[in-house]
Structures are given as structure tokens and as C-alpha cells.
């Protein structure tokens, strides 16, 4: 995602009625009921092996059921912060939800509900399928029934580097030669680590920093979700903290580019993933976290971001299985 370039596109001017035009009823469009009905077998899988994540009664995302005894993976950054977290699997509502380990790199959280007889997803043997292969994911749900959206695998699987590079989430003083904090960005790693105005950054991961450019160099190859160790000078004393890195463009979101403007409700965290499977399902930020299924109803990945109007990302099944094992180990050592 090169932010520096200008993309050519025309916005539609008049899309009014034109004489002699034919139009397809909405039910027969790709997201329409008649088309979606052909995927009833896959919908059944979503009904029992995907979880609806709720903030009170409002849906905030979906989850992948990974064990009969109630473990569920979901997108961490879309979890409700309010404490009114609830989960629905099939038609059962669960209000006791524990949030276990989180993986900050993949933006995945492990949840646990009290159940003994869930039906976990069946993992597909590989995510290495041809482009054009059908995939199915959760669409907006009704209270008891999962609905689905279908699309195809649409580009090469690859790393999505941090948009704008990795950053701490601080604004530095312009006049200072050494990197000195002017302000701390909300919801950033810097805020979580308690960085303060006037802190001077002395070193990053043991490497001495004397100029602002050296700080940029030290962070340049950082990965989203990783921690960096900072040595700070605060009011004459040295303080050391660990700061979570995030994508610069996702921390400082005041400028939406033109493509963002035509992308509707995209995910806030949509870059900095080690590898993704790309598909073209028309999702939004509130339908991420659930399983991505193939025509056999097997889980080929987990939906992790609606990046923009034309790109949706899933964690490929290979990485998803590793992630599930790792987080389960952390949950019950």
C-alpha cells in the first residue's frame, strides 16, 4: 500500500435511469439471496462452527470454533472493550466469555465459553489453491441464523507490510535535534507503555539513538505487533519500557486517501500481517474474525481484515493452525 501515489479513478457522476437499460433483480446479484442459496451446505458449517461476537446485542465480529470444549479464535482489535462481551454459537448465547491469550502480530485473540459439545471447524489441507476458487464467509447475521457471503481467492498469498512503516505512536518535537516526545497518540503502543510528553528516546533495543533519523532507521524494519525496548530520559532519570509497534498509517488516520473514501467500513487494523490469503468477499470491519470456507465447507483461513473496496484478507490455514496451537498452550499450560 504505497500511500504516496495518486491513483487514477473516476467517480460515477450520474447513475440515474437510462432509457432502454436492463437491470438484474437484487436477489440474483452476487450477494443476493437466490445466489447465496446455492451455498446452503457451507452456510450450515458457519451456523455451527462460527461464533458471533457481541457487544451487548450489537455484533462486532465473528469467531472460529476450534475445539468442542469452547475455544474460539477471533480478531483481537475488534473485541468489545465495554465488558459486555457475549458470544453466540448456532442458536445458543453465552454471556460468560473469558479472553485468554492474544497474538498481537496476527491480531488474534483466544476466547473460551462454557460448552462441551461444540463442532470445531474442519481444517482444509492447504490454502494453496488456484485463484478463482470459491470461498465463503460470514455476512451480517440474523439473531438465530448465520448468513453468508461468497467470493473467490483473488491474488497471490503474501506478506502485507505495515502501512506507512512501523511506528511507536508518538509525535516528536520539531525543533529538538534529539528525538523528544511532543504528544502521544491515542490507542498506540506508546500510550499503553505510558510514554509522556518531553520524554527523550535514548535507545531502541539497545541501539543508541542521537538523531530523529536514527530513530526512523531503527524502527524501519519493525513488525506490527512486536515489542521494542526503549530507554528513555524522563525528568533527568532513565526509564525503560516495552512499546508495541503498529502501522504508522493506522495510528495516524486523519487523512483518508481517495481509495479509502470509496471503501466503506474497512478494518482499522488491515496491514502488518506476515502472510495473507486474499479474496474478494464484500465484507466490512464488523464481519471479520470468522472462518473462510471452501466449497467442501473446510476452513481454508480466518478472515482478518477488510482492507478496502476490492481486497479482503484471511490468515491462511497453515498459519492459523499454528496460531491455534500456540494460543491454546498459553491458555492451559
Amino acid at each position: 500500500m504505497n500511500a504516496n501515489r495518486i491513483w487514477v479513478i473516476a467517480f460515477a457522476g450520474l447513475i440515474g435511469t437510462v432509457q432502454g437499460q436492463q437491470s438484474l433483480e437484487s436477489s440474483y446479484r452476487t450477494t443476493g439471496n437466490a445466489v447465496v442459496a446455492a451455498f446452503e451446505a457451507q452456510r450450515q458449517v458457519l451456523q455451527h462452527s462460527s461464533a458471533v461476537i457481541l457487544d451487548g446485542r450489537k455484533e462486532t465480529g465473528y469467531g472460529v470454533v476450534i475445539s468442542a470444549d469452547g475455544y474460539i479464535l477471533t480478531k483481537a482489535s475488534e473485541l468489545p472493550k465495554s465488558g459486555d462481551l457475549a458470544v453466540t454459537v448456532d442458536q445458543t448465547n453465552y454471556h460468560e466469555v473469558k479472553v485468554f491469550a492474544e497474538d498481537l502480530v496476527w491480531d488474534v485473540a483466544l476466547l473460551k465459553i462454557d460448552s462441551k459439545d461444540l463442532i470445531p471447524v474442519d481444517y482444509a489441507p492447504t490454502s494453496d489453491v488456484l485463484q478463482g476458487t470459491w470461498v465463503v464467509a460470514n455476512g451480517v447475521t440474523s439473531r438465530t441464523t448465520r448468513r453468508l457471503l461468497a467470493g473467490i481467492v483473488s491474488a497471490k498469498s503474501r506478506e502485507i507490510p505495515a502501512s506507512g512503516g512501523a511506528a511507536l505512536g508518538v509525535i516528536l518535537k520539531v525543533k529538538s535535534k534529539v528525538p523528544q516526545v511532543e504528544a502521544v497518540q491515542q490507542k498506540s503502543g506508546a500510550e499503553e507503555a505510558g510514554l509522556q510528553k518531553d520524554d527523550v528516546i535514548l535507545s531502541v533495543d539497545g541501539k543508541r539513538i542521537e538523531k530523529v533519523t536514527e530513530l526512523n532507521d531503527a524502527l524501519k524494519d519493525g513488525k506490527v505487533g512486536n515489542l521494542v525496548h526503549l530507554l528513555l530520559r524522563r525528568k533527568g532519570e532513565e526509564v525503560s519500557v516495552d512499546v508495541r509497534l503498529a502501522a504508522r498509517a493506522e495510528l495516524f488516520t486523519d487523512q483518508m486517501d481517495r481509495n479509502d473514501q470509496m471503501s466503506g467500513d474497512f478494518s482499522t487494523r488491515r496491514s502488518g500481517f506476515p502472510r495473507v490469503l486474499q479474496h474478494d468477499i464484500l465484507g466490512s470491519r464488523t464481519v471479520q474474525g470468522g472462518p473462510l470456507l471452501d466449497l467442501d465447507g473446510r476452513c481454508i483461513g480466518m478472515n482478518i481484515a477488510r482492507a478496502n473496496r476490492s481486497e479482503s484478507f484471511a490468515i491462511p490455514v497453515e498459519e492459523l493452525k499454528g496460531l491455534a496451537e500456540r494460543l491454546m498452550k498459553q491458555a492451559k499450560p
Binding site: V18, G20, Q21, Q22, S23, L24, Y28, R29, T30, V35, Q131, G132, G151, I152, S154, A155, Q278, D280, S310, E311
Partner: peptide, 12 residues
């Protein structure tokens, strides 16, 4: 990037 869909409207 490839995307699948249907022709939903045809005008001149």
C-alpha cells in the same frame, strides 16, 4: 487482483 461478479445492469 481478480474479482468475480455478475452483469447487473446493461445500458447503451
Amino acid at each position: 487482483v481478480v474479482r468475480l461478479g455478475r452483469l447487473v445492469r446493461i445500458a447503451d
